[in-house]
Amino acid sequence: MSLLTAMLLISVIGLATYGMRSIPILLLADRELPPIVAVALRNVAPAVLAALVVTLIASPDESNFGVSIPEIAGLVVGGAIAWKTRNLIFTLGTGMAVFWLLLWLA
């Protein structure tokens, strides 16, 4: 791939990404959103981030959808610690510790 092609490709994708990230803010910030839309937008974070976790650990082509017991256990314990402490360092530490421990035991 030539440098010119590569730079064009990356620039187009970069511009489009900036557009996707900026246009809703630029269009909606000065508007009073209908209450139903405002309520719906509050659910974007939990819905997208929960779906993102699924795509991070699962894949359709592997057995058991690529999900293992250590992975699930790490998320459950990490999630519980997050709920209790609301501290991301503790969340990462305990989630990874449980994951590694179960990997090592298996």
Partner: peptide
């Protein structure tokens, strides 16, 4: 695997209302 743990923590911390819980469970 680490990003999955972090995003799970952030989802959990954002679960302040019942509809947020429904959104997370159905989304996943």
């Amino acid at each position: 695997y680490a990003p999955a743990v972090m995003f799970t923590g952030l989802v959990v911390m954002g679960l302040d209302r019942r509809p947020a819980v429904v959104a997370a469970v159905v989304g996943a």
